[in-house]
Every structure is written in C-alpha cells, then in structure tokens.
Design a protein around this nucleic acid. Structure first.
Lengths: 151, 151
DNA sequence: CACGGTATGTCAGAATGCTGACATGGGTCA
DNA sequence: TGACCCATGTCAGCATTCTGACATACCGTG
C-alpha cells in the first residue's frame, strides 16, 4: 500500500518527529510490558518509586505525566495487589508517602530489563556523543516550552 | 513544594526525556489550540490533509498516531461541521479520499500560526545545526525501534 | 479463474484518562 | 493570631480512545 509519498515537509518538523518518536517508543514499551501484565503507566510508577522512595501520589502523577486522579486509581490497584504500601494516616499534612514492597521490587526488575532492551534498540544507531547531544537538545526544548507560557 | 530532589538518573534517560518533551509539547499545543476550539488530533488531521490532499481515513489515522476507529469518529464530526468532504461512494475500492473545504482551510490557517509559534518557542534556544542534528537523531531512534520488532 | 492474505470503513462495547468538585492541611503575610 | 492561598487526597461524572468484530474490496499466487 502506498505509505510514504514524495517529500512532505511534515518530516522536517521537529514537533511532528518528536510525537512520532514518542509514539513508537510507547508502542514498543507496551509490547514488551504486556507479557508481564504491565502497562506503561504502571511501570513508570514503579520505576519512579524505586529511584525516589516515598514519593506522594501527586508527585508520582507529575513524574508519569498523568493527573493526580489517574495516579490515585493506579496506586489503589497497586496497593491492593501488594506492590506498594502507603501509611493509613499521613505522617505530616495529607501527603501519603508510597514505598515499594519486596514483591513490587521483584516485579519491577523484570520490567526494567525489558524496557532497557527497548531503549538500547532505540539508541543502537547512535554514538555516545550523539546520545549526550540528544539529551542536551531535548532539555533545551523542554526548557523553551515551560517558560511561564503565554508569550 | 519539593519537586526536583538531587540528581536522579531518570534525567539521564533519553526515553524518559522523550516522553517529557512530547508531553510538554502536547500541553503547549492544547493551550494555544483551545481558544480556537480545536484539539491536537483535530489540528493534526487538518494539517495532514492540507499537505497531502485526498488521504484516506486509515492513512490519516497513521499520520496522527491514533486508530482508524478514532479517526473515523473525528472525520464524521469534521464532515458534519463542514471542514472536510468525502465522496458518498468510493471511486476505487473502499477508500474514501478526504479533502479540506475552503472553510476547513481557513480554520486551519489560524491553528497553523498558533502551532508554529509553539514550535518556535521550543526551538528558540537551538541553533540551526542543532535543529538539524536533532532531526537526524530522532529519525535514527525511530528507525531503531521500527525494525520488525521482536528481535 | 479461484483462492487466501491483506487493507479498508464502520459499528458496538470496554477501558482508560480527564474535568469538576469537595474537604483538609500547611505556609505566608499582615 | 487569623486570613488567605496553594497543594494534596479523593469521589463522581464525562469524554476520548482503544479493542473486538464484521462485511467488503483489492492483489498476489497457484
């Protein structure tokens, strides 16, 4: 079937390419995570907790790029299944610090390996200096877009 | 509130940064598109049609990174509101080539300007050669991820 | 020509995420 | 100290997208 016609300048738009790369990455992650019974948000939440134990619901939501409400639903499921624990009462304020259980940590290990293989495949054609450059450029893009907005 | 703690190596993961950049970009686009009564998918569809008139529903879906079914719902709404037209009967096969109406084209112009301003803000801190480098690197990432999969 | 394989448009149901709203706790500044 | 503002956790309703399924149309091979 005719997919890519001649040169369309959509392919020269960094915004479009960014969306495409993100979409392809997400699909690839879903594929390797599905056999483990995990979604991408599910994995993101666990990975965040492994690297920063004690994060709150809202902080996890920001880290996984979803709303507090969505993360809350996920956390309740994870808690019910024994992957994470939250104190019944907040030690300070209303913030409930979340922590991985040993079961959650074990579950995460397999997922991390799977995701790492995806990331390696993504970076296979890039040299170390290109990867460093990509990191710098992406941060610059994010920086430019998060400047208080509205002109 | 404590947002960014000390160095966490999430910030060195290209995959995570890619997701963050894409999320920030999408949010910024939603902000400038909302006053025009447009969503990002809505805009993507119109922009695709402007650059490649006569695209089918399925091709538009792939270009906007949604399913055929979602794009179909959107196209029905766009057709109902007079932004696009589709022949009642397929000239060949089942494929219904879609085209922008003058109204749709006018509507798109304002959106394109708004989105362009967002993209400019995103690229403000980058030199031309850095932008070209980013383009090359993103394509390489996509290429590495779309290789037939399943190693 | 008949055939399986693939792609398309479309309908319906299910899942996921988001918006709106509320009560509560903490910090700041007068 | 009291008032205000902001952030948090959580509940409920809504919107959007996805998954599953079907009939149809093309295209290659035998």
């Amino acid at each position: 079937m005719g997919q890519d016609g001649a040169g369309i300048n959509l392919e020269t738009s960094l915004g479009y390419l960014l969306k495409e790369a993100s979409s392809v990455l997400r699909t690839a992650m879903e594929e390797v995570l599905r056999p483990l019974g995990m979604t991408v948000t599910h994995y993101s939440c666990l990975e965040l907790l492994a690297q920063r134990p004690g994060l709150s619901n809202s902080e996890l939501a920001r880290g996984a790029f979803v709303t507090r409400q969505s993360m809350n639903v996920l956390l309740q499921a994870l808690e019910r299944d024994g992957y994470v624990t939250r104190p019944a009462q907040a030690p300070v304020g209303k913030v409930l610090p979340t922590r991985l259980t040993p079961k959650g940590r074990r579950n995460l290990e397999k997922a991390t390996a799977a995701v790492r293989s995806v990331e390696l495949r993504m970076l296979a054609g890039l040299t170390d200096s290109e990867q460093a450059e990509a990191l710098r450029i992406l941060k610059a893009m994010i920086h430019g877009l998060t400047r208080i907005d509205q002109c």
